[in-house]
């Protein structure tokens, strides 16, 4: 599956907020078809890194390159149209609309009306929310909202998907289901997934990037990362204490 050509690269990507360097000179590369996990303690800059990729924040310096083209200065909607989808850490959905309308808005951007309705039905089935189609998303449980957001993202048929803590707040069963789904998504798209759950990471990823204080600390297989003393110090060590 994994192909050598990078789908996404960053060169010297840096994001400063006043004195805080949230993303610090990051050189990152993701191969076509790869599934990469991003880990690191809270405040390491993972979410900010994602926001720079989608131009939600304008990076202080550095470049983002997608399929060989620089997209650093593109607008968020242009980046989305190039095929990058994002599921944010706090679910970003249309709370005042129902589940169906949420998905429809995503489907209708790429499809004609009739086709869009078919896609919506399909996605609802896939994320298992058909029975909630006419519920307001604002009234759903956290895990269900996560599901809706994932559905919205999938509907857009992105080629690269950024998932920020997709299993947070999910029940055990929902986590299992999501794991399966991410595996399935990876057949057609490249993924970067921010996660804390070690079991989950072991189940899906072969390569892991560890962020610490805005910079990449280590990039290796999960096994080696687990053995790495530096990583234990900044991340796993803290978790064991906590």
């Amino acid at each position: 599956m994994t192909d050598a050509r990078p789908i996404l690269e960053t060169k010297g990507l840096t994001m400063r907020f006043g004195g805080v360097v949230a993303v610090d000179n990051v050189d990152f590369s993701l191969a076509e078809g790869e599934l990469r996990c991003l880990i690191g303690p809270n405040g390491a800059g993972k979410t900010t890194f994602f926001r720079c990729l989608t131009h939600q924040y304008k990076p202080t310096s550095g470049k983002v390159i997608y399929r060989g083209d620089e997209i650093t200065g593109s607008h968020t909607h242009q980046i989305a149209r190039r095929g990058i989808g994002i599921k944010t850490q706090v679910p970003s959905v249309f709370d005042g609309l129902d589940v169906r309308e949420n998905i429809w808005l995503s489907a209708r951007r790429n499809h004609k009306d009739r086709e869009a309705n078919r896609v919506v039905d399909e996605i609802l089935e896939r994320i298992g929310l058909t029975h909630l189609a006419h519920q307001l998303v604002g009234q759903l449980a956290h895990g269900e909202r996560q599901g809706v957001e994932l559905g919205i993202v999938l509907t857009g048929d992105p080629e690269l998907i950024l998932l920020d803590e997709p299993t947070a707040g999910m029940t055990h069963e929902e986590v299992h289901r999501t794991t399966e789904m991410i595996r399935e998504i990876n057949r057609t798209a490249s993924l970067i997934v921010v996660e804390h759950d070690m079991q989950f990471i072991k189940a899906i990823a072969n390569k892991v990037t560890v962020f610490n204080q805005g910079a990449i600390l280590v990039e290796d297989t999960m096994e080696n990362v687990l053995k790495n003393q530096q990583v234990r110090d900044v991340y796993l060590g803290k978790r064991e204490v906590a």
Partner: peptide
Amino acid sequence: HFGRVVVAIKENETRAEYLGYD
């Protein structure tokens, strides 16, 4: 479609952008 997008933007501008709407 246009009207629904307008309402969606009111609901959540960032998500509308993530979907590719200007």
